[in-house]
Nucleic acid binder design. Structure first.
Ligand code: SF4
Ligand code: SF4
Lengths: 166, 166
DNA sequence: TGTATTACGGATAAATAATATCCGTAAAAG
DNA sequence: CTTTTACGGATATTATTTATCCGTAATACA
């Protein structure tokens, strides 16, 4: 069981977008080049982010992507769920119903409380999500600023600026 | 991203085994029948549990599976990891190395500290595992005992006893 | 000793999901 | 009107999951 690579890409793209001067946009082509990943495929991830209203895409020349709201208002969970979906990692197929002396599933509309096994798995899933929910892009930016040598940060910013130049 | 159905099966089988009188064993065939799942395929999950030394299998007539240690010594995490592996759900492909002004990856042996993005994902993964680690089969049994009607519990136990009869 | 039972593990097939590319459409800028 | 760019449908490729099959070895029992 593995998250798809879209998650990694989306997180990195958002991280880059978070450090973008106000008003600027980065086209998918540049984001792909920056990370050395296939442009067309990355597009799918960006579109998912766009649908989830985490980034906003603009058409035409000088178009591209920017964050749809402040970095402090975008959590890791927002990004992960945008590309992976909100479904729980544990799916219960109600195999308990096959037990020889099972409780009958409720005939109509009524829902049963999920069983003890499923609840543990759901709680674990929620613990995962809860942690992701607690970290925002603003937090990430702060950490990166602290950890990555200034030379590297400036170098990348310069490259971006040069390539956005038009 | 979804856990494989082996996880659900393994958890249910362990739950059944936990309620088994001391000394008894259940063959894979019965466990499969009990849950209405394909016997040969379930075998794979049971073999994984066996390899992880969570259950112990015995060959020959009257053979079958039993737990390899006390229910209180088997956590959900043990079971999940036995069939899903211990690898983190987030895999980092070091795409930061493709940035135009990246830090050079350390030339030899030395390992870099994982980056900020990866660390958040790893921490979330650990939160998930940590919750699974905190619940044992003994805890599960207690909950089930409280929640499932006695009639159902006894009915299933009776069915098992009858089918183990030889 | 022989036969039935059962776990074990390799090989393989089928179905599903992840990964990747292609291309047509529409919007915006100049 | 032309270029740039996101958007989204269609499709191909590859990996993983799901499932079955069968040969081997160990054990119980007659
Ligand atoms: S996990 Fe619970 S709800 Fe899901 S199949 Fe098992 S018993 Fe049913
Ligand atoms: S998550 Fe971190 S370690 Fe992984 S590719 Fe991105 S920057 Fe590198």
């Amino acid at each position: 069981m593995q998250l798809k690579n879209h998650v990694e890409w989306a997180l990195h793209c958002c991280s880059v977008l978070a450090s973008l001067p106000d008003g600027e946009r980065i086209p998918a082509k540049l984001l792909a080049e920056l990370h050395g990943i296939p442009r067309e495929y990355l597009s799918k991830a960006l579109q998912a982010l766009s649908t989830a209203e985490i980034v906003s895409g603009t058409l035409g020349p000088n178009g591209g992507y920017r964050l749809a709201r402040a970095p402090s208002e975008i959590s890791f969970l927002d990004i992960v769920e945008a590309v992976e979906g909100k479904g729980c990692t544990f799916v219960c197929t109600e195999i308990r119903d096959n037990m020889p002396c099972a409780e009958k599933p409720p005939s109509k509309g009524k829902k049963r409380r999920p069983c003890a096994v499923a609840r543990v798995m759901y709680d674990a899933d929620e613990a995962w999500r809860s942690h992701l929910r607690s970290v925002t892009l603003a937090d990430l930016a702060k950490t990166v600023e602290k950890e990555v040598p200034l030379r590297v940060l400036k170098g990348n910013a310069k490259w971006l600026a040069a390539n956005l130049d038009r």
